[in-house]
Design a protein around this nucleic acid. Structure first.
Lengths: 242, 242
DNA sequence: AGACATTTAAACGTCTGACAAATGAAAATT
DNA sequence: AATTTTCATTTGTCAGACGTTTAAATGTCT
């Protein structure tokens, strides 16, 4: 195995790409052991340090894991949904915070995606999902709840709704959209009145979910989206006038 | 700045985490220059090689970029939508291929998400989007088109539909779902008859899009989802009997 | 003074060689 | 047979060196 010397990129980036391609194409399968760093440095004709930098790049993407000791080495990692969630959430969060995505836009995307799982959630929700949602609603009615706690509970509620659709791919895709919204939501001050209104909408959602009425859920979600956007606008106005 | 010596993780992972946290929390802002590798190795009291491995981890996540030369160094990277697309697509693709996600499940997620942008696409589509979709439909009618070419065009068509919703966050989230499906779709053999049927559905979609009829788009998408699933089942049967 | 060429220092990219620490297999011992 | 010891392998970390790139600073000429 060799590396294209005409490429302008760093050697470690080229090697990382070569190995990544081998994994994506299926030439390297899950749990397969890569050659040792010493062997790789021979094959690619670079130093061990360079190989190590390449491997760290892959480790950062959860494509490989490493083990020390005899018969250790780098192994192709089975990318779990959990790990993928995590990566997606940090990526989405940064994307939103660094690109001045408006509250409007993020809100629109989030509720559009969430509506997509409403019909599925209505038919597939289990008692577990309903219990989780009701528990979060209960938390949201506690008077002493901090703003951060409120937002966290809101995220948990909506994640339960998404998970109720029973499709791990959907859950994965939406994890980013829902969680990445939290920093933006944290900027809103939720008054007792607004909390009450949201709790009542949440209650309707879980009731429709229980009844298996997907269209009902969508309707409430739309109202919730409208109200959330309204709160966002008030926040924007307060900011400009202060 | 120092590192927790009680942690069991690698030093390079700890340092990467420390810098990543600083970026996510906003302590380091976009385009800000990090200390040089030599300075970082002093601050963290580790060797330069270890610092470099940490920086490569961050580079793999597009959190930083590096520049050589005087006044070069590592800079906090503005995560662009383009880069985020790319990461999301490789992650989604691997997730699907390594976790034995069924064609059913992937299909369901994809069409559920796509339906979510139908109403927005109907109101916001530009002449550009319509032209792209029509161009892809034309490609799909060419008799000599290979199976790979067909699938690529299919992806391009659906991406144009998603982009027509005019919400970059939605486009980003869906890029993964749509593109990650391609390897699964590639396993289906598209006969002339099935191609014809799909082209006719695509044509209806772009017509509804042109007319601003979101509900119409959703309806056709549902039919397309149904037909795609049917093709998937035929493929599965052929595989078990052969 | 202004335009162009040269020098130079800072910083990353890579290499070499070394040692420590972990780890599982094999060998030795009880 | 069970336990302990040895041992080879492999990753993790370090120190020092050299090449390459790059932009700023300096010098030179018109």
């Amino acid at each position: 195995m060799k590396i294209d010397p005409s490429s302008k990129a760093d050697l470690s980036a080229q090697i990382a790409k070569a190995i990544r391609d081998a994994i994506v194409s299926g030439a390297l399968i899950v749990d397969e052991r890569l050659p040792s760093e010493a062997e790789l440095s021979e094959q690619f004709e670079v130093s061990r340090a360079t190989v190590r930098e390449a491997l760290k790049r892959l480790a950062a993407q959860s494509l490989i894991r490493t083990q020390r000791g005899a018969f250790g080495g780098a192994f192709v990692n089975r990318l779990s949904f959990e790990e993928a969630y995590g990566q997606q959430i940090t990526t989405s969060t940064l994307l939103l915070s660094m690109n001045a995505v408006s509250f409007e836009t993020a809100c629109e995307a989030r509720f559009a995606l969430e509506s997509a799982c409403a019909p599925l959630a209505a038919t597939r929700r289990t008692a577990d999902h309903l219990a989780t949602m009701r528990a979060e609603i209960f938390r949201q009615t506690q008077p002493g709840l901090s703003d951060e706690g409120w937002c966290a509970s809101d995220v948990a509620f909506h994640r339960a709704l998404v998970d109720a659709a029973g499709n791990p791919v959907l859950s994965y895709q939406l994890a980013g959209a829902v969680e990445a919204m939290q920093p933006l939501m944290n900027m809103i001050t939720f008054t007792a009145r607004s909390r009450g209104k949201i709790v009542s909408l949440h209650t309707k959602i879980v009731d429709f979910c229980d009844a298996g009425d997907g269209a009902g859920i969508e309707e409430i979600l739309e109202a919730l989206a409208l109200y959330t956007r309204q709160l966002g606008q008030e926040m924007a106005q307060k900011k400009t006038t202060s």
